[in-house]
Nucleic acid binder design. Sequence first.
DNA 1: CATGCCATGTAAGGCGTTACATGATTTC
DNA 2: GAAATCATGTAACGCCTTACATGGCATG
Lengths: 183, 183
Amino acid sequence: MSVNYAILGLLNSRPMSGYDLKKIMQDSLHMYWSGNNNQIYKALVQLRSDDFLTVETHHQDGAPSKKIYHVTDKGRVALDAWICSTPPETPEFKKPFLIQLAGAGRLKPEALEVLVLQYEHQLNTQLKMQQEKRRRANPFPGCTDQEKWIEDMIFDNILTFYQSELEWTRRVLEGLRQKIREE
Amino acid sequence: MSVNYAILGLLNSRPMSGYDLKKIMQDSLHMYWSGNNNQIYKALVQLRSDDFLTVETHHQDGAPSKKIYHVTDKGRVALDAWICSTPPETPEFKKPFLIQLAGAGRLKPEALEVLVLQYEHQLNTQLKMQQEKRRRANPFPGCTDQEKWIEDMIFDNILTFYQSELEWTRRVLEGLRQKIREE
DNA sequence: CATGCCATGTAAGGCGTTACATGATTTC
DNA sequence: GAAATCATGTAACGCCTTACATGGCATG
């Protein structure tokens, strides 16, 4: 149930509404859930019944009223405990492209090259999007130095992921071109 | 439904049973499903009803009888079509550690260091396991050069993933230690 | 004598996804 | 006048996972 703690963590650095959480989760890559309503609102109910959150309803005219969630002391304790006592899991990945590649043993190298070039293009696009996101991301006021640094490191992690995948792609292309020359 | 094509691809390079498929999927990292019975046997039924597979039952005494699946011409055509006409998706990742890190803004750098060191250890273990697997992996006979090369590239991809994650971890540790010194 | 491997399959449940529902305001 | 944004929530479905079921043989 790490979604709950992810949400708790976000609310701990800044109280906000379910809708705000949704937007953040939708365009962050390291929060690997899609950021759908079902999960978020369900999690908020759960966290509230654990007394990890309190709610403050803000009525605004011209827009539906907001529920701003605040983390309680109990919630903060639980969050810290979870962070410190959860043994770090090994990261996982899903690369459907590797499935395609694995089945391509009998394909012509030329056909494979087309595929790999498409993949490279895809990765480049993604990398640029992510870099653009980093440039636009300005830390909200009242954010500590350490929080800024952590956010930076997370961005670094994501960018590194795409960059190393791109480097691998280039190695693959080199190998393929050698195969094509040898034909 | 890329599980089906993953299975089709495996059977294309070598006919085998559901049980064999299960073992392969369980200890391959790039086939990101757990390799559970439910998926595999269901997929085999589907692929057979599509006429992508034929079955050959091998009765063996002293052990339950095997069903060896072979890919049909129709199946091979479908596989190649899928491989060549599926636009490569961007890879995804799940790094629960980043969730922990994201919530650690108010934690002491010393506590964070402990966590990161644990993560580093975890990654090192995983990397060694993977390298060991590669050393033991000997290509089955009748495997083409290109198939061997592809398998190599997939291994390369996986190892690169862990290595670049480890390098990132070291950058994080450096930053953290600087923070500790500055205190 | 218990555990594990071979080998096939089924059942139940959790997590996560898309889509639905509502309703006012702003933007094109 | 259509579509997007703000805002909260529900419903249905599908994928994937664990666990169950069977049963003989081999290993410690």
